[in-house]
């Protein structure tokens, strides 16, 4: 597989504390990579290292098959980025802000109107950014990151502080960019739900360590449904089920058993009925991805 970004044992240490430790991030071309983790897990530090803003304590970073240490400027020409809070010059207009970056990137002036159009800020082209709402500033930041038609777009918490409609807007924009121009996108977030619908690949990080990195489909597989039973005299029923050698637990008035084949479930229900338990409900209950995400990151916290 062709990786646009590949880090090996990437580590960043601040004093005694390891903010990022032995991270192996791999992002294949054309994917939308959801980089997930709780606040303070090392996402931003990793992204800063990918952009050459911070030097790794150890480990290597390859972007477009080139060593970031040696070819930083060549690599950055092909990257667009938005790191944490939007960066802008409040005393300049939206157009002038983009012009500042455009000059450095050396792209034609028409690009400015084009990217303002994409993020729907054309109407405020000549207004000072000082008066913009947070959502508009964030969109201006995204516009700036698109100026050089990047092959790799790196967005650190782009939906932070946005209202729901703003979040949806940015989500649609990401989808559109990925499908129309084949851009590879790295998008970090502390909420799985934010990237769930667009990410094709996920990396989950906590305390600087990668806990899960695979396709979104693999993560979904982890959320296979459980069978939930609501039965009269639940405690006795639970003992009965466990005595049959079936894994089960009781919470919220329901008895949960792992997913089984239809035959097994039918057999169990039959047994329960035979032993005079009253069965009110038999349901397939899906664990939400959010639950899995929480579980993955919390297991690490307990260790």
């Amino acid at each position: 597989m062709e990786y646009v970004v590949e880090t090996k044992n990437l580590t960043k240490q601040f004093g005694e504390q390891k903010a990022v430790s032995s991270l192996n991030v791999t992002i294949p071309r054309g994917e939308i990579y959801g980089f997930l983790g709780p606040n303070g897990s090392g996402k931003t530090t990793t992204i800063r290292m990918l952009l050459g803003l911070m030097k790794p304590t150890s480990g290597t970073i390859h972007v477009f098959h080139k060593d970031l240490k040696k070819d930083r400027i060549h690599i950055l020409k092909r990257i667009g980025s938005l790191v944490e809070n939007p960066s802008y010059y409040p005393h300049l207009t939206a157009y002038e802000n983009l012009e500042v970056w455009r000059k450095i990137l050396g792209v034609p002036k028409e690009k400015i109107h084009e990217v303002l159009q994409i993020v729907q800020l054309s109407e405020v082209t000549n207004k000072k950014v000082k008066g913009f709402s947070l959502g508009m500033k964030q969109r201006l930041g995204i516009a700036a990151s698109l100026l050089n038609d990047p092959e790799l777009l790196i967005l650190d918490e782009p939906t932070n502080g946005l209202d729901p409609s703003g979040i949806i807007e940015i989500r649609n924009l990401m989808k559109q960019l990925a499908s129309e121009s084949g851009m590879t996108i790295l998008i970090s977030s502390h909420l799985l739900s934010e990237v769930e619908q667009i990410a094709t690949r996920v990396g989950i990080i906590s305390k600087g360590k990668m806990l899960f990195q695979d396709s979104m489909d693999k993560l979904r597989e982890l959320s296979k449904p459980n069978i939930a039973l609501r039965i009269s005299d639940a405690k006795k029923a639970l003992r009965f089920i466990v005595s049959k050698g079936i894994e089960a637990d009781y919470r919220d008035d329901h008895i949960f058993i792992p997913n089984h084949s239809d035959e097994d479930v039918a057999e169990l229900v039959q047994q329960l009925v035979y032993h005079n338990f009253l069965i009110y409900r038999v349901e397939g209950k899906k664990r939400s991805l959010e639950d899995i995400f929480l579980q993955i990151t919390q297991e690490e916290r307990l260790v």
Partner: peptide
């Protein structure tokens, strides 16, 4: 608004 990080992440 810490534009250093934007500036330095340009080529």
């Amino acid at each position: 608004t810490n534009t250093w990080k934007k500036l330095i992440s340009l080529p």
